[in-house]
Write a protein that binds this DNA or RNA. Structure first.
Length: 300
DNA sequence: CTGCTCCCCTGGGAGC
DNA sequence: TGCTCCCAGGGGAGCA
């Protein structure tokens, strides 16, 4: 499940191979892969698409930058075109030596990469970059200019990894919401999904249903600190691999072995030994320790 | 403003 | 062994 750490790790592995490279060919497996943000066009599924779609998908572009905000990543071309990548839950960007075959129904877009001279020697294994997404919760969004990317990302909260701690605390402090719901809301802060929300709540001893306005300043700060430390540790481990996630060179992450509560309902709490409890909070499967994470009713 | 619920989609696990 | 059923997940829409 790609959340911020997985996307950030992917971004850096793509950066190694794509910066300065040119996209020489774009092959569409499913041209409504961009339909999430624009449902009016291209609803016909697999097959040939209009030439402008290939242009939107960065045909003939030189990749000048790979940027990330929260769980979204964008490939920026030197001529200003932008392609936003959202992995959803099963999306991958993977290098491979050949273009995907016609029976490869989950390969939605493939880009043939002309490497820079410096990288040419090992280019054969990395000749094609493929966007693959079996569950199709992910998608690609083409934007005409970098300004449009800024406008898009202004709708999101500050990035949960790179933003100063006190600013994230400021985002959460006034909200009359359950802690977990706020953490998962991309408009509050960008990048946190179900795994890292549960991990951060456990590590700071905050109940997922804790009303933020009743949380002491100290606890609020420790929640944000735990969140940022967990995200950073996960980035350093190459992310968490549960079922699907691998990076562009098909390496899995290691952070899943450091999950303290996520996916461990019924197992003993690593801190106190009591059985971890599963429930649903903010519409998501949630695991917490009934004694380490208690509701508090302070007034601020 | 907030929280629900539903929907999208498919692989994989559980249960029979 | 093979079948069906259910569920996970991010994000957006619609409604109370």
């Amino acid at each position: 499940m790609p959340e911020l750490p997985e996307v950030e790790h992917l971004r850096t592995t793509l950066e190694e191979e794509l910066l300065g490279a040119t996209i020489e060919e774009v092959v569409l497996g499913r041209h409504n892969v961009t339909a999430r943000s624009d449902r009016r066009q291209a609803r016909t599924g697999r097959g040939d698409a209009a030439p402008s779609l290939h242009h939107d998908l960065l045909l003939q572009a030189e990749v000048s930058e790979l940027v990330r905000h929260g769980k979204q990543m964008a490939m920026v071309a030197r001529d200003g075109r932008v392609l936003v990548v959202q992995l959803g839950m099963s999306g991958r960007m993977v290098f491979q030596p050949r273009p995907p075959g016609p029976d490869d129904v989950h390969a939605h877009v493939a880009w043939r990469i002309k490497p820079t001279a410096r990288r040419r020697r090992r280019s054969s294994r990395l000749a094609w970059l493929v966007f693959r997404d079996p569950r199709r919760f992910g998608g690609l969004t083409a934007l005409p200019a970098v300004d449009d990317l800024a406008a898009r990302w202004d709708c999101l909260g500050p990035d949960a990894l790179v933003t100063a701690q006190d600013r994230l605390v400021g985002q959460l402090r006034p909200l009359r919401r359950q802690a977990k719901a706020a953490l998962l809301d991309q408009a509050v802060l960008a990048g946190v999904g179900n795994i890292y929300a549960d991990e951060a709540l456990f590590r700071s001893g905050v109940h997922p249903m804790q009303l933020l306005t009743r949380l002491s300043e100290t606890k609020l700060v420790s929640l944000v600190a735990a969140l940022q430390a967990t995200l950073q540790a996960a980035v350093d481990s190459g992310g968490s691999t549960l079922r699907d996630y691998v990076d562009a060179k098909e390496r899995s992450g290691d952070f899943q072995s450091y999950h303290l509560v996520y996916g461990r309902a019924g197992q003993p709490c690593p801190q106190c030994g009591r059985s971890l409890e599963g429930s649903v909070v903010a519409g998501r499967t949630t695991v917490r320790c009934p004694s380490c994470q208690r509701l508090v009713h302070n007034r601020r």
